[in-house]
Design a protein around this nucleic acid. Sequence first.
RNA 1: GUCCCCUUCGUCUAGAGGCCUAGGACAUUACCCUUUCACGGUAGUAACACGGGUUCGAAUCCCGUAGGGGACGCCA
Length: 469
Amino acid sequence: MTIVVRFPPSPTGFMHIGNARTALFNWLYAKHHGGKFLLRIEDTDRERSTPEAVEVILQGLQWLGMDWDNKNYPGRNYYSQFAERERHAAVAQQLLTEGKAYYCYCSPEELEAMRAEQKAKGQPMRYDGRWRDRSASEAPAGVNPVIRLKAPLTGETVVRDLVLGEVTVQNTQMDDMVLLRADGTPTYMLAVVVDDHDMGITHVMRGDDHFTNTFRQVQIYKAMGWDVPQFAHFPMILGPDGGKLSKRHGAASVTDFRDQGYLPEALINYLLRLCWAHGDDEIISVEQAIAWFDMDGVGKSAARFDYTKLSSLNAHYIKQRPDRELTQLVQPFLETRLSRALTAAETARLTQAMPDLKPRAQTLLEIADMAKFYFDAQPLDEKAQKLLTPEAKQVLTDLAVRLDTLDDFTTEAVEAACRGYAEEKGLKLGNVAQPLRAAISGSTVSPPIFGAVALIGKDEAQRRLRSAA
RNA sequence: GUCCCCUUCGUCUAGAGGCCUAGGACAUUACCCUUUCACGGUAGUAACACGGGUUCGAAUCCCGUAGGGGACGCCA
């Protein structure tokens, strides 16, 4: 049997990182087993669904490198739940005809009152089935009814979850859920089941916030006489404080991470290790992940998102990337910071500086910040100003003269000149390099300064030296 | 309130009854390297939620307690 999984986001804003993790686990599972990974946009909520949000999801998946296998639909390259609304309604009608569902004429206000009363009395909040056995002749005039499932009143529903194991819930714990709204549109419960069935989904794998829904969905499968798929529920990803992970923690959507200079491979590697492990392995390539990923490695407890660990992984993958690729990735960030475009020569310079830049950065944004002074003179920060004592300024004046005599303005030549100067004056190299660093970079902290001086060139170096001295 | 799930270093986790004096990674501390900051290297601090069982033996199995999370919509 070919394994078919799906990723069903609803296009109501951004793509939460928890959703990305769910997508990743599904994608990996499909790849590992040679199955199919399908994308279904759950756009039945017309109020909140937007084409922009769909685009964000599509781009997010592409950026992370997760390709989906169902792209041939009229007018779009993903399965749209909304497009199937007639099919969903037909299923509800079928259930109605077969006596497995019924019309309920309760108004939203009436239901709200019912729940309020139940809550006040400390009773479980459930629809009490008041229209379950009433005949249509009692229907109030002018009210569009919803269709509810006539759920079993006795017995129990069992789910064998690939992660959580076998769990049983008494049917008395579940009420008659709404399948079709008064306006004829399907509810989520109906739509997922019908779509999963129609799409031939063999494994429904999602966040465990859906776990209790599963029991209700199984009732729909049974009512329709359909095979129940395998289920797997992954623990949730929490914020560092144990609460819901949100933007207030720093970043929560795929777009946020991209815009903050994280590499997709770092994010993938990090996400992979949340709630999943393969022995002591930490740095795992996508190829390796495909080979290793399976349900037996998935844990049961929720994980907290740790930005620090993500950053260290990002730093690792930055070091792995070729300089040219990094240049391309960093350039947009840098141009924003410089408020101007880089010339071709400057782009080449960025690539040359990259070996000095990349071991020092955790994000592409940090590289851009660090690289600014290679292109435009930066104002001296407080520490740099403090460092430029009269003695230090004398050093700068002397250095300007020395550097002017260099024919070959290479890293080695600059370094040799500085070392020679320090030796002559009986100064420690640091007493020469630090003022030089301050003058050239505007800061007391920078990539190796001799190389930077060489890259900036003699003229610009002279300018900065004189202006600081 | 009802139901469901979870619980190993600060964090992510390894661990499928003896291999555990509980391992790795990130973070953290110290030292080495060094023109600054990093990188890299070496060493260190740090955890089986609690209480009962079962067993010759439990982080691992069972039962309670506590704590955390989730679900209870004509949202998905």
